[in-house]
């Protein structure tokens, strides 16, 4: 199992007749930052809870770091989770709480103190270390919850909606904090904010109806070699002139975004060749504000989920 941090196979979790997980299989490579993308109730949170051993599975197998399913006696200190909708003890103080968690993980006293202090510093809460959790705002509590995940640098971290409730500045700080851990820790992130997933993850899994519909490296999904989108000042008046420049290409205009998407086949010679031909033709009709090749994750997800047609711009 070298090279694999989490391997889950055919997970099934039933709640009465409903199946929250229905044959969920996902492998997370070591060092990857895996983003889980899916609709509400698709099974992302349930998968995380199952991996962490909080849920009793109906069937299926889980393996973490090649040491079997989660067992605190085995995985304590090498696995952490930010569970969704789980409050920290309100009477506790962040400094004490993180120290105590570090001690439970087996860190020696000094290392536990240092780790707790470092994590509070990382989430910008060092000055609130001695206040009770009850006195902290929602966003601050979220930051303490995030901090507890990285105490002692566990090898595997699961984050369920990690940036929920954070103000823009703190959200950006947390993005940088998580991004800095790429390659050093294995992280799985569940989020409805696809821009966050795109900014943080190296891999992505599309989750639908309790199972994984598609898994890939993020780059392979978003860096399409047969699509380019132009943000324009105005809609080109003569679309036929554009079609003549790149024969066989299809064009789609999105008036709301002011973008024109060009999808072509490989015979067109790739993105650079298409740009060389198409840009002069576009500039002859209007101003070009931006050019983007490939798809955003949101476009790829919506296209994959079939919620819009293939000409999403």
């Amino acid at each position: 199992m070298i090279g694999v941090a989490i391997a889950t196979r055919d997970l099934v979790k039933r709640y009465g007749r409903r199946r929250a997980l229905d044959g969920f299989s996902l492998t997370v490579p070591r060092g990857a930052v895996m983003g889980l993308v899916g609709a509400n109730g698709a099974g992302k949170t349930t998968w995380m809870m199952a991996v962490a051993g909080f849920l009793r599975l109906s069937s299926g197998s889980v393996d973490i770091l090649g040491r079997g399913p989660f067992d605190a006696a085995v995985h304590s200190g090498s696995f952490a989770i930010l569970p969704q909708d789980s409050a920290l003890p309100l009477e506790a103080r962040p400094g004490d709480l993180l120290y105590r968690y570090a001690r439970m993980q087996g860190l020696p006293v000094e290392a536990a103190r240092k780790s707790a202090r470092d994590m509070l510093h990382a989430v910008n809460l060092l000055d609130r270390a001695d206040n009770s959790i009850r006195s902290l705002s929602h966003g601050m509590r979220m930051r303490v919850r995030l901090a507890q995940c990285f105490i002692g640098s566990p090898e595997v971290v699961l984050l369920d909606e990690p940036l929920n409730g954070l103000d823009p500045a703190e959200a950006d700080r947390m993005r940088q904090f998580i991004r800095a851990r790429r390659g050093r820790q294995t992280i799985a992130i569940s989020s409805h904010n696809l821009h966050d997933i795109e900014a943080l993850c190296t891999h992505v899994a599309f989750v639908e109806k309790g199972r994984v519909a598609k898994t890939a490296m993020l780059e392979s999904i978003t860096r399409s070699v047969t699509r380019v989108a132009f943000t324009l000042a105005a809609r080109p008046a003569d679309m036929e002139a554009l079609s003549a420049v790149v024969p066989g290409a299809t064009f789609a205009w999105n008036a709301d975004a002011g973008t024109l998407a060009c999808t072509f086949d490989e015979s067109a010679g790739g993105v650079a060749a298409v740009n060389r031909k198409l840009l002069p033709a576009l500039l002859a009709q209007t101003d070009v504000i931006a050019v983007r090749s490939g798809l955003s994750l949101e476009q790829a997800y919506l296209g994959n989920a079939g919620q819009r047609g293939p000409d999403v711009v």
Partner: peptide, 19 residues
């Protein structure tokens, strides 16, 4: 109370249920 608030989960990734 810990079961209801979910606070138990922060402990259960560090110690076993019996502990």
């Amino acid at each position: 109370d810990d079961l209801k608030s979910g606070a138990v989960r922060y402990a259960l990734v560090r110690v076993t249920r019996m502990e």
